[in-house]
Structure formats: C-alpha cells, structure tokens
Write a protein that binds this DNA or RNA. Structure first.
Lengths: 213, 213, 213, 213
DNA sequence: GATGAATGAGCATTCATTCAT
DNA sequence: GATGAATGAATGCTCATTCAT
C-alpha cells in the first residue's frame, strides 16, 4: 500500500490525497444524512474544497457514491479477512463472515449506516458486499454442507438477511442478532437448525477474540 | 360493495372518483419511477387535475404515499385471503402466503414495483405487509412446527426474504423463486430443508388452482 | 337593535345572521393569526359554511376585512360612549377616550389584536378609529384647551400614539401605559406636561368606575 | 472607502458587486411594492440573475430584508451624522434628528417607502432607527430638558410619531410636517409647546444649510 | 341560495452541474 | 489544477376566486 503510493509522482500523490479527502467527507456526511440527503456542495465544503473542484475528481455525484460504497466495503472486508480464511468449512466461514460483518457494522456505525443507505439508494452495493460471501457459500456447497446450490436468488436472500441484521444492530438490538443472522444464513442454505447452531457456536471463540482486538 | 357506492350522493361520488383518480395516478407513476421520483404535480397532471386540487384530497405528499401503499397491500391481501385460511397448519399458511404474495406481485407488477419502492421509501409498509404474516407464524409456533419464537428480528428477516423474492420475480426470475422463498421462510423458522420442502409442495395444488382463477 | 332586526323579512334576517357568523369567525381568526395570515376558506370553515358561500356575502377578502374592522371599532366605541360625553372639556374627553380605548383593547384582546393587525394591513382602520377622536379634539380646540389646530397630521400622530399604547398593553405593559398615552395626546395637542397630568388625573375616577363595571 | 474596494481581489469585487445588485434590486422593489409584496424571484430577475443565485448571497428572504433595512438606516444615519453632534443640548439634538430624518426620507423616497414597509413588516427596524434617538433623548433627560424618563414606551411613542411624519411627507404633506413632528417629540418628552417651538426654531438654520448641500 | 370541487398562478427554497477566470 | 459564481429546472405547498350543480 505504501509501496503503491511511493511510486506516484508528487502530482499524482496530491490528486490521490484530494480524492481521498472528498471520499472521506462524503462518507461522513452520507452516513449521517443518507446518500440522497447529502449534496455535492456539502461534500466539497466538508472536504474544504471549492464547489466545482468536486467535478475534477468525480464525473458525477453517482461516481462518488460508488467510490464511497466501494471504500467502505473494502474496509470492512479488510477488517475481516485474516481469521475467516483459516476456517476450513464453508459453513463455518459463512457463519463467521456473516456474524462478523454485522459486528463490524455495529462497531463502526459510520460504515454501517452508509451501508444501510446504500442498500436503499445504491443498488450496486450488493455486488460489492456479496463478493466475499459467494466464495464461502460455494465452498460449503462443494463440501456438501449445504443442499442449496449457489444462484442469484440465494445470494440475494442471504444479503437481505444480512441487511436486516445490520439494521437491527444499528437500531439498538443486542449482539445476539448477529449470531442469529448467521444461523439463518446456514438454514437458508439447507442446514438443519441444530447443525446451524452447532456450526455457529464453533465460530464464537474466533469472533470473541476478534472483538477484543 | 356496489351497494355502498350506490348510496352516495352525486357529490360524494364525484369526490370518491376524483380521489381514486389521484390514487391511481399516483400508483401508476410511483410504481414506474419510484415514490421519491414522483412529484405531486406529476400526479395531478396524470390525473388530469390542477396542481392545487391534489391538496383538496391529501394533506401531504406523504398522505397519498400512505394511501397508495395501503391500497396496494389491501388489494394484495384481498387477492389472497380465502384459501390460505382453510389451511390448518401454521407452516402451510406461511408457505402458502409467502408464495402467493410473491406471485400476486409478479402478476400485477404495478403493485409489485410499488411495493419495492415502498420497502425503500415508506418504512411503514412493513407493518402492513407483516400483519398477515405474524398470525401465521404465531400459529405455527404454537403448533410446534417452528423452533424459532416470534420477535421483531425474525419477522424482519422474513420480510427481507419476501422482498428479495418479489424483486427477483419482477426482475424476470421464474415463478419457482416464490416457492423457494416460501421454503426459506420455513427454514428460517426452524424447519429442516426436507420438511420445509414437503410442506411447501403440499400447498402447490392450492396455489395452482388459485393462479388459474 | 332588536327593533331593526324585527323589521326584516325572514330571508333577510337569515342573511344578516349568516353574514354575522362569517364576520365573527373572521374576527376570531384574524385576531389570532393576523389579517393576512387568515385565509378565506379558514373563515368559511370556522363559520361552518362552505367555501364558496363566503362570496355570496362578501365580494372580496378585503370586504370582510373592512367589515370586521368596522365591527370592532363600532363595538369599542359602544363600550366607551356613555361616560365620555358627560365630560365638558375637550381635553378631558381626549384623555378619557384615549385611556379607555386602550383599556378596552387590553380587556378584550381579541379586539385589540385585530386592531394591531389592521393598523398594519388595513389602512382604512384609521378613519374608523379617528372618528370619535376628531370630535373631542375639535371641541378642545374650540374651547382653547389646545394650541394645535386639527389637521390630518395631528390626528395621525394621535393615532400613532394610541397604537403604540395598545401594542404595549397587549405586550404585557402595565395599565399605567394607557394613562401615559393619554397625557402624551394632550401634550402633543399643546398642553403643558403639568396641565396634561392634571386633566388626566381628573378622569381617573370615571375610568376606574368604568373598569369595575 | 474606495480604498477598501480597491484592495479586493477581482473575485471578491465581483461578489460584492453582485450582492449589491441584489440588495439594490430588493430595495427598489420592496420600496415600491412593500416587503411582503416582493418575491425572491422578482428580486433575482430585477438584478438580472438566476433564481437560485439569490441563495448564494442570502440564506433566506428574511436575511435580505434585514440587509436592506440595515443599509437604508445606515445610509440615512450617514446623511445626518455630522451636524447633529455639534449641538450641545439633547432637546436640540432630538428636534434636529427627527426633522432631518423625516426630510431625508422625503428627499430619497425609495428609502422612505422602504422604511414605511419595514415598520410594518420588519419589526427589528425599530431598534435600528431608535438607536440614535435613544442617546439624544438620554442626553436631554440628563440635562434636565425633559421631564419624561427614558423607557420602552416613550421610545415607541417617539418612533410612532416619526413614522407618522414620514408617512405624511411621502403622501405629499409639506416639509413643515417634519418640524411639527420634531416639536411633538419634544412635547411628548415633557417640554411646553412654547419651549419646544423655540428649541426647534433654533435648529432651523442647521437644517436648511443641510438641505442645500 | 348554498355548496364544495376545481383552478392555476405564486412562493420560498434546493441542488447537480457548468464555466470563465 | 482549482475556484466559486452562476444557472434554472424542480419541488411541496397555499390561497383567492370561479362555477356547475
């Protein structure tokens, strides 16, 4: 990462920094007031830039929305990566991933709220979010944990449940909601309630150690 | 029903008709361009009325949104009622209800699309939609079909799945999606995939006869 | 008064009553929300009449404004008449009239507030109010109490002071303000501060007995 | 003054000019049609600007009203200052100030009419206008010219008289009205008509020389 | 007479976007 | 590159007035 930056000319580096200022400003505002509730000039002002400067970095309002959503999902994925991949079973990865994704959204509500707004006002977010999920599900299917095969609809269903989980957590629901969402995921994928529970319980230690990081 | 209308004075009849013109215009536009994407004056124009006339019938833009959403959910519930209640098991009712709700939304895409927009832009729609669902779920819980107890989060999850189902169908997915959503509902509620499948299959005849009405 | 009404045909009587209902409704609303802040349909509704009925009784919004203002000034003058005319000196009448006018406006704030709004939004009110004043001033001039002669400007000045007095009283100022306004009137008309004070004091008994009515 | 302008960057200069265009347009229109009778878009059009440009310079309609009123009272005070302060007696200052204020309003009817509208539709104007007045009155009280002490009501009374004077002048009354208003001020403050006349006469030379500027 | 449905111009305000400097 | 002034269409809502019934 620093490696990448180091290779930029000063000009390019500045450009990158300015762009980041804009994206961060947008994230702050959009997570507070919603995507549609945030105007381009508010973003520019928050980034301490002139109105029109915005359009030197983004062709469109929609472009920065995409950038912000991407940045948030990337950040959230980064926050998760390491541990999940040490799990061997797809089912465990799914459960772990789901529960953790929800906890991260709750721990960093700026991200969580942006996500909620994006679910509503930026369709494409779903692709970003589901990327990590697809692999885990596919792995589980391959391993025979799940009866369900992977297609658009099952993914959409999992996403819908994930979303409901985040919304509940941001609205004040207890952390247990994340665990339940994880089990619902497994059930939808075809596991019995009992198995789903067992698998999910097995991920708890990891989640807890993660939380205490 | 016609009886009720017949008893209206001409004045009242006209009022009712105009209000309906507005509601229908709103439904048409909102299902096409979304709720927020539809302006009050567009509605008035579509209804062939003057701008200000709108406010003789609705205090607010939000009031017509509520009216339209209510009208749609009412119409959809009416379209379902009769057969579902003849089923004795809560699980069957849930499966039947879910599948049918999705099929109605697909058969009458104006309703379906309005619903999708409302999920996003009119929170309260969830209460309207979940009303019928709660009873069926509660019945199933009482009967011991489901291991899950009824709380906000489980209902939100079911709604989220329902929504995903409608969206998929409107997006061109095959009818089978409705059946799957129904099974997912049962799985989330704690039934095994096999049981869920069996229950749902049992409702097929009813659904089919309904569809051919 | 009843005599006048008795001579009307039932048709005419009804017309008069309806008109009064409208005027009273207008008074109530306009004194609360101001003249411009009151809409024709609000008046009709408050009078329990249909929207359009208003225009059978008044050609214009401005016409009912005139009617209401006239009614209020008439009512206020009625409330004053008797005692003032028993005073022999113009100066005493002016003092008495001024002080009393202000007290009536304070005692019946519906009237007072309407007046304030009218001063601002219905120029012609000044003529109505000044009618009684002119005579008293003219009398005082004739009697040599005042050095000032009667013309538009002196009357406008007296009105302006009267208005300031009412406004202060409605805003919570003590009753003493009415007495001061009365003395200011006399001073403007040319009396010395001492004489003005003496004359005004002499009217106090009358005012007090009036207040205890 | 020109010095200040010269030091502005072209950007700032333009901004200042545009803002002035708006303020001047507003003054022109508001003095013609009243404050409430002037819409934001009329102002923008009169200033040859687009509708929305207005809001780059003023947060609110009320903000430009305040700005215009302030500008006018400032301009009027500037037109007066120098000579009044050379008078030693509070009574003379009051008389001079009043008479002159009225004459300026009459000489620059755009200002005068704006003031009349503001008296009605922009309460705060009274504070702006009374500022200079309070000092003169207080001075006179201290010097023992006046028997009346300074409080809200006496100031409101003086303002009311001032207003009546301006209104009369704008309505075509002769300049003598200004002199009379000045004497009324002194009388209200407790001076005898004779003293008031004497004091006011003494200010005439100053006023005349001012008028011939 | 009375009703109340209908009108449509009008208003304050917002905001994505463009462009001269 | 960067600025920020300018645009102008759009929005939700109000209200005096008209007119068919």
């Amino acid at each position: 990462m620093t490696g990448r930056k180091a290779s930029l000319s000063p000009r390019e580096a500045k450009r990158v920094r300015t762009r980041q200022r804009l994206t961060e400003a947008a994230l702050r505002l959009m997570s507070e007031r919603g995507i549609n509730g945030t105007s381009v000039s508010e973003i520019a002002t928050e980034a301490e830039l002139a109105n029109g400067t915005f359009y030197l970095y983004f062709k469109d309002k929609s472009e920065i929305v995409a950038a912000v959503c991407q940045a948030v999902t990337l950040a959230m994925h980064n926050e998760m990566d390491s541990r999940r991949l040490s799990l061997e079973e797809g089912s465990a990865r799914v459960a772990f991933g789901t529960q953790q994704f929800i906890e991260i959204a709750a721990a960093e509500p700026t991200w969580g709220r942006l996500l909620m707004s994006a679910f509503t006002e930026f369709e494409a977010i779903k692709d970003d979010i589901s990327r990590y999920m697809r692999l885990d599900v596919a792995l589980g299917v391959e391993q025979g944990c799940f009866t369900e095969s992977v297609d658009e609809f099952v993914i959409d269903t999992l996403l819908a449940i994930l979303r409901a989980g985040i919304e509940a957590r941001l609205g004040g629901a207890k952390a247990e909601v994340g665990a339940r969402a994880a089990e619902y995921h497994l059930r939808v994928l075809g596991m019995s309630a009992a198995d789903a529970h067992r698998v999910r319980l097995a991920t708890d230690k990891v989640v807890e150690s993660q939380a205490s990081r």
